[in-house]
Write a protein that binds this DNA or RNA. Structure first.
Lengths: 111, 111
DNA sequence: GGAAATACCTTGACAGATGAGGTATATCAT
DNA sequence: ATGATATACCTCATCTGTCAAGGTATTTCC
């Protein structure tokens, strides 16, 4: 089963931040890791990804720099900031709460 | 903690369908029940609610009829259809899957 | 020389959520 | 009587995130 992307709308930023907790990385790799971690069930479209990077950077949750890795296409690396770490913590808490609430709302058995 | 509504975007229809499994109901009451069930952490804005009703009815997942309850403002009742029941089952399965995937994606501990 | 993989980015269109506004009825306090 | 509050419905313009479609550039392999 593959998830319709709109279901995860609003979680994009948290997913990227979580991935960056494992260390600096660049767009293509971040997306590959996320797809793999999701068991192929989900992956960002490129447009979504780069939109999110821009948003996250504008909000001060990540910073970016060009890598100088020698050969290959240039890569823009992203790093999570202190503010990003705080945001991720908040996002994780909100996710925990979301699970509780939605479980109550859609898995209801009786009244 | 109250959930930012965008987090639940895409689950609106499932939440309403689940509520209608308990029996026919009308907009105002559906919303009250949902808010209560969510422990006050979440409630639909009216515009969201009626947009969803229209969408659900157009998709054949619910039907509606005017109640003739005597006094008070008129009420439009909604009933879940067979197709709606199937849809809800699918939505619940997707939610189960979503939880698995997002847990893997944002609660990661190490690589 | 060209196909495929890697790697980045922008733009316009679309869909769902919602703020703001509207209508109408019943009840209750002043 | 009159105004406030609660119930109950609905629409429309706007905002935001997603994404299809398009683009650029480099390296590797056949």
């Amino acid at each position: 089963m593959s998830l319709s992307a709109d279901i995860l709308r609003g979680h994009t930023d948290a997913i990227i931040l979580a991935q960056l907790m494992a260390g600096d990385s660049y767009g293509y790799e971040i997306n590959k890791n996320i797809s793999q971690r999701a068991g192929g069930a989900y992956g960002f479209k490129e447009a979504t990804l780069y939109t999110a990077f821009k948003r996250l950077e504008q909000n001060g949750f990540i910073t970016s720099y060009w890598g100088d890795d020698g050969p290959g296409a240039r890569r823009r690396y992203y790093a999570i900031t202190q503010a990003g770490i705080c945001q991720l913590a908040a996002d994780r808490q909100e996710w925990t709460e979301t699970k509780k609430v939605l479980d109550a709302l859609i898995d209801q058995k009786e009244d």
